[in-house]
Structure formats: structure tokens, C-alpha cells
């Protein structure tokens, strides 16, 4: 190893300082930009549990699906029936749940196991259900959820790669709101 003279030492410390400066300025750009993108544009989340089977996590024991949550499209709290959305659980604010939108505000819903047989979804609320009947903690358990709890709309399955697909809104059979059925008849 070569002996360092003073000039080299000074050069090294200034290089170190420049390195720290670059790191700090990069840090102050990267962190806010990342946080904003995750908050406003898109969020990636792993789906846990069996409540959305068979659409998400189809095989028990296999690795769980990863979905892309579009947060920009729900900035005005606009969703359609059949969309898969993530909402903050009304029971536990630290947890987010992923369910399918069955009813929007004003819809009449025939419930599955709620305390009332028929429910009108109040203003500013959603009726959400998991696809896996009976194995899902959803609106049949805690009632309609407020739109303010909406977190994002699942737009793509991105992992595993062989199941990569865009998620299209689709309602399960016989789960349309009641007045729409009456209109059709």
C-alpha cells in the first residue's frame, strides 16, 4: 500500500463528502417520489388468505398472488360493480382486505348471511364480498363499508408470471343488485 500524502488525503475527504452529499440529495428525491407513487399511482401487494378463491390464490399451499393496485383510478372514489378493490378493514385499521364490489350506493342487495335479508346500501358506502362464500370476512359480516376506506382497485395480477392478466370487472352469478334484475324482467 502506498503512503498517502496530504494532497491525497484532502482529495479523499472531499470525495467522501461529495459521496455523502450525493447520497443525501438522492435520498431526498427518491424517498418522496417513491412514497408519492405508492400513494397516488400504484401499489403492489401480496394477497393472503383464501377469501378470493378461485380467482386469486387458486391453489392452497402454492405461493400467493401479487396484484397491482391502481390508486389513481380511485382518487375520486369511483368504482364499478364487479371490480376487485382493496379497502382498509373496518374492524382493524392496520389491515387491508381485498374483496369484490357487489353493490354501489343506493343498490338493493340480497345478502347471504347478514342480519337483514335485504339491504339498501347507504350513500357513500359499498357492499363488498369475497368470492369464496363462507370463507370470507366481508360485508355479510360487518355491513356496508364507507367509500372513505377505499384503498385501491386491483388492476393486474403480476405474479406468478403464468397467471399474468388484466383483471376485468365481473360479478358472480346471481349477485346483481335487485332493481337491475327487476328492470331486466
Amino acid at each position: 500500500m502506498r503512503l498517502k500524502d496530504g494532497y491525497h488525503m484532502a482529495q479523499q475527504t472531499s470525495a467522501g463528502r461529495r459521496y455523502v452529499q450525493t447520497f443525501i440529495s438522492g435520498f431526498f428525491v427518491a424517498v418522496p417520489v417513491t412514497v408519492t407513487i405508492l400513494d397516488k399511482l400504484a401499489y403492489v401487494a401480496r394477497v393472503e388468505g383464501a377469501s378470493m378463491q378461485p380467482f386469486l390464490n387458486p391453489d392452497v399451499g402454492a405461493q400467493s398472488d401479487v396484484v397491482l393496485l391502481n390508486r389513481w383510478s380511485v382518487r375520486n372514489y369511483q368504482v364499478q360493480r364487479g371490480d376487485i378493490v382493496s379497502v382498509v378493514s373496518p374492524r382493524n385499521p392496520k389491515q387491508k382486505i381485498i374483496k369484490r364490489v357487489i353493490g354501489l350506493e343506493g343498490d338493493f342487495i340480497r345478502t347471504l348471511s347478514y342480519k337483514n335479508r335485504y339491504v339498501r346500501v347507504p350513500d357513500g358506502h359499498l357492499w363488498i364480498e369475497g368470492d369464496h362464500r363462507g370463507h370470507s370476512l366481508d360485508s355479510n359480516c360487518f355491513g356496508p363499508v364507507s367509500l372513505g376506506l377505499l384503498h385501491g382497485r386491483a388492476s393486474h395480477i403480476i405474479w406468478p408470471p403464468n397467471r399474468w392478466q388484466r383483471i376485468k370487472p365481473s360479478l358472480p352469478p346471481n349477485r346483481e343488485p335487485l332493481d337491475a334484475e327487476e328492470d331486466a324482467e
Binding site: N76, Y77, P93, K94, P122, D123, G124, H125, S146, L147, G148, L150
Partner: peptide, 19 residues
């Protein structure tokens, strides 16, 4: 940080109109 306590004045989204 889940540190809201009793007696705090809070600003919340209205449950019937999130805007």
C-alpha cells in the same frame, strides 16, 4: 402511529361522502 386518544379533536372523512 395509532396514537389518537379520547378527548382529541380530529378531522375525519364523512362516512357518507368521502370528499
Amino acid at each position: 402511529l395509532f396514537k389518537i386518544e379520547k378527548g382529541d379533536i380530529v378531522i375525519a372523512k364523512s362516512p357518507f361522502d368521502p370528499q
